[in-house]
């Protein structure tokens, strides 16, 4: 009987210990658990849309640096290369095809990316222009130097349309109960077309990504914008017909107004 009691007590103690240890682990995990939320995850494009803002925020380990990447799914792009003809005339001389490049690519970080993340990790998670350059497939390019040259032109082209951007130091951090709250308000460019985008938050320690959290941002056309856009794509004949009739009507209408208004002799 005594033996049994001792045994029972030992089991209870062991169970307790497991629970306490488990709790400790859970509490510890909670303090480091990375969360991400985009407050404006559904952007609607109506008639008066002129871009938007997206706020990405969450909780992170206070010891970790953060990198936030907002990107569209990888796709392909076809662009015209300008070059000199006859030594002094600039014109389109070739077509450049790019594969595995996102249409929108924004990276924000607490510090300069190459100061907090190792090159291997950058390549692994496609963070930063050099990593994106390695990841992208381009044709036709003669060699690595040629690829690098045209990729940097590609970046210039994308930054010019406000679709690519890399910056650091804009993430707000606030310490609270041993946790860290982070938040960033980003400008959402009106040049970004409708589609699904992904905001990925990387927690970084000792040059390595230790945690990842994601949040979706979807951009959708609504109302008249959606109706017109769909009609242009799916019913070109009717759309063309309406466009022409409207133009004819407007031309005649203004002509009549001017006659009545005595604008002419």
């Amino acid at each position: 009987m005594k033996k049994n009691k001792v045994k029972k007590a030992a089991i209870v103690l062991l169970a307790l210990a497991v629970v306490v240890m488990g709790l400790a682990i859970i509490v510890d995990r909670a303090s480091a658990e990375l969360t991400a939320k985009a407050n404006h995850d559904h952007i609607t494009i109506d008639f008066f849309y002129h871009g938007s803002t997206v706020n990405v925020s969450g909780i992170s380990d206070p010891d970790a640096d953060l990198i936030i990447k907002i990107a569209s799914p990888e796709a392909h792009e076809t662009l015209k290369e300008k070059g000199k003809v006859g030594g002094f005339l600039w014109m389109n001389v070739a077509t450049l095809k790019l594969e595995k490049v996102p249409n929108l690519y924004s990276v924000y970080s607490t510090k300069k990316i190459d100061e907090i993340l190792s090159p291997q990790e950058m390549d692994k998670y496609v963070i930063g222009y050099p990593a994106l350059g390695k990841h992208a497939e381009m044709s036709p390019v003669k060699d690595e130097a040629d690829k690098a040259r045209w990729f940097s032109e590609f970046i210039k082209f994308k930054e010019n349309s406000k679709l690519y951007n890399i910056s650091f130091g804009k993430i707000d951090l606030k310490g609270k109960d041993g946790k860290q709250e982070y938040t960033i308000l980003t400008e959402w460019p009106y040049q970004a077309p409708p589609g699904d985008y992904l905001a990925t938050v990387y927690a970084v320690k000792d040059g390595k990504v230790v945690e990842i959290a994601e949040s979706k941002v979807s951009v959708e056309q609504v109302g008249i914008v959606k109706t017109l856009s769909n009609m242009a794509k799916n019913n070109g004949a009717l759309y063309g017909f309406i466009s022409i009739i409207s133009a004819l009507g407007a031309g005649f209408g203004v002509g009549l107004v001017f006659r009545k208004g005595g604008g002419a002799h």
Partner: peptide
């Protein structure tokens, strides 16, 4: 031209045209 562009290339922007 407008009809052909709208029908084959879907590249006429009605709002911009207006």
């Amino acid at each position: 031209v407008t009809f052909l562009q709208a029908y084959t290339n879907h590249s006429v922007d009605f709002v911009l045209a207006v």
